[in-house]
């Protein structure tokens, strides 16, 4: 990707003009742009609307499509949310997910900052190979690792504890964060470090006083992305946790709220909605950071 931008810069082609869109007539734009966009947005958002409307529907309207329009709700209720918060272990699951996500994100960020700095700036022998290995480990999917990890977790004696998740989540967070931070560190000019070295700063001082303050956007991007990744994690949590009080939200909702053949859709959907809200709120505050970390990981 960078070569394209470079080429265009060299050729002096970069411009911000709006292209030839002004030649398109309005009816044409409606058919080619607005209509497909509306369909995309509708399809992509409908499941969330359906989730939300089900979460606040009273039970008697839920499946009675003849007398009540399924797309709307009369007399919305918080009954399902109340049920979740006071009659199930849901608050505990939320707390577990929060704790595990924060702890594993923090550990991963700390380890990644050091690793990325070492690979990009300390330039020890084999730094390039190490960087490549980090990228390759990003490609190892959890669905291959969960069985041997379950074996290890069991042997170490942390089976069915939050610690098992806090220690295993960094396996997919560290490669990602390191890769992303390497890109950020690369963009910080060498001269800053050199002048700090000349002034007698140690490597530690350079890292904490020069590099980290400049890499704050990168840290936020990596942190947000890592947090949502660990919030969304499912297969490890499903495998390593068996008792209800240690479950995370995705596992808890699926394994404890689904009982027998009668699905309590109201409770299930409000559980899904409440469990999604924290990441969605976090995301809405940091959209640009999130997008840059997602596209950054792909582009490098």
């Amino acid at each position: 990707m960078s070569e394209i931008t470079q080429n265009t810069k060299q050729a002096g082609l970069h411009d911000d003009s709006e292209g030839m869109e002004q030649f398109n007539t309005l009816p044409r734009r409606i058919v080619t742009v607005y209509l497909p966009l509306a369909v995309f947005v509708f399809v992509l958002l409908f499941p969330f609307y359906w989730m939300a409307i089900t979460a606040i529907k009273p039970d008697y309207q839920l499946t009675d499509y003849k007398n009540y329009s399924p797309f709307w709700v009369i007399e919305p209720t918080l009954e399902h949310v109340k049920f979740l918060l006071f009659e199930t272990s849901y608050p505990g699951w939320l707390w577990n997910t929060m704790l595990v996500s924060f702890a594993s994100t923090f550990i991963s960020l700390a380890a990644s900052v050091f690793a990325a700095y070492a690979i990009e700036r300390v330039r020890f022998t084999g730094a390039r190979v190490t960087g490549l290995m980090i990228f390759l480990s990003y490609l190892v999917p959890p669905s291959i690792l969960f069985i041997p990890l379950a074996f290890i977790v069991f042997k170490v004696g942390i089976f069915d504890s939050r610690l098992a998740l806090i220690l295993t989540y960094p396996t997919f967070l560290i490669p990602f964060c390191t890769w992303l931070l390497m890109g950020y560190f690369r963009s910080i000019p060498f001269e800053l470090e050199e002048s700090a070295l000349v002034d007698g700063a140690t490597r530690w001082q350079i890292l904490t006083k020069v590099i980290l303050p400049l890499a704050v956007p990168g840290l936020i991007s990596a942190g947000i992305f890592a947090f949502t990744l660990s919030w969304n994690e499912f297969i490890y949590a499903l495998t390593f946790i068996s008792s209800s009080e240690n479950k995370t939200v995705p596992v808890g909702v699926l394994t404890e709220l689904v009982r027998g053949d009668i699905y309590e859709w109201g409770a299930l959907m409000s559980g899904a909605l409440l469990g999604s809200l924290p990441v969605v709120i976090l995301y809405s505050f940091f959209v640009d950071y999130y997008v840059s970390s997602m596209t950054g990981a792909v582009k490098e």
Partner: peptide, 10 residues
Amino acid sequence: VVPTVLSALA
């Protein structure tokens, strides 16, 4: 962004 398991429930 939304956890896969939760949107899969929807």
